[in-house]
Simulated assay, not measured.
Amino acid sequence: MKTIKTIFACFGLLSLSALFIFAVQDAPSDDNLEKKIINDYNVYALNVPDDLNFAGEAMPLHDPDVLERMDRELLVNTYWQSNALLIFKRANKYFPVIEPILKKYGIPDDFKYLAVIESGLTNAVSPAGARGVWQIMKATGRENGLEINDNVDERYNLEKATEVACKYLLEAKEKFGNWTLSAASYNAGKAGVSRRLSKQNVTDYYDLLLGEETGRYMFRIVALKEILNNPNKYGFNFRLKDLYKPIPTSKISVDSAVTDFVKFSEKFGINYKILKLHNPWLREPHLNNKSGKEYFIEIPKEGYYTKP
């Protein structure tokens, strides 16, 4: 038995050695390696367009600091290909929800890119406790009428969260007089932006000396706007069928407690997972609803989660 094991072990070592030798022999020489890299993979410096703007407000790209910071964000977001491609896919699914609400409130369409950099269009949770696509803090949500507790957290309701973001941005626009500072205040807070403007005796976002996060904020928004609007220009290739599709739903009114969402889901021909995917604001497998409040639960149209 030991002899057989020894033979197999030797055979295994010989096989591995052969594979290793083959791999080494197959690898290009030093001279050919450089040519192979040059021919097969290229990283290009990018041209920063000279007409970039946010919500119609031009970026002062004549300022070399502004130009370099914009160049950085274009490079980072272009060459972080997997992240950018996922955003292309998600945008096709979620922008149709966000865009009409922005329009309803008179908020420029460019603010949908703010949601992109806030969360990557996912229901993210920040270390500070901000949640959802729009990264709304608990206090801000409650101040704007969202229900937030262990049972229900409407920061995860994309429609309602977008409305809260719109209300905040309208207040910020009234305070600062332009959309760029309003967007920056979404990250740093209205008081934070006001304090920095006052201390530094300037009136423009691009003249402020800011910390890393807020200092990159507007540049990241504009970079994602530029890339998402010009995929081929930045090397992104995909078919329409590659993008995530919005799934049509019906809204079911509920004004009483629901003791078991598993059974509730089954009544509509879906499972609990699918119910949660469309209603992430339902935080527990039941709904307390002691007050008799009316909620609208989204149920996907028949056939979207079953084989054709």
Rank of each mutant, 00 (worst) to 15 (best):
M1R: 12
A9W: 12
L16G: 01
P28K: 09
S29F: 04
N32F: 12
N32D: 14
N32M: 14
E34P: 00
I37R: 09
P49Y: 08
D50A: 05
D50F: 03
D51I: 02
N53A: 15
F54D: 05
F54W: 03
P60A: 06
V66A: 04
M70D: 01
L74G: 05
N77G: 01
T78A: 08
N83D: 09
K89R: 15
R90F: 14
A91N: 06
N92R: 13
E99F: 03
I101W: 05
P108N: 11
G129V: 05
R131A: 13
V133C: 04
T140V: 07
G141P: 04
I148F: 03
Y156A: 00
L158S: 02
A161H: 10
Y168L: 15
Y168R: 13
K173N: 15
K173V: 05
E174K: 15
N178Q: 09
W179R: 09
S182A: 15
R195F: 00
L197P: 00
Y205S: 00
G211S: 08
A223S: 14
N229I: 03
N229T: 12
K233M: 12
F238P: 05
F238S: 10
R239W: 01
L240P: 00
P246K: 12
P248W: 04
P248S: 06
S256C: 03
V258W: 06
F261C: 12
F264N: 04
K267Q: 15
G269D: 10
N271P: 01
Y272K: 04
N288K: 11
G292E: 13
E294F: 02
Y295N: 06
E298A: 13
K307M: 09
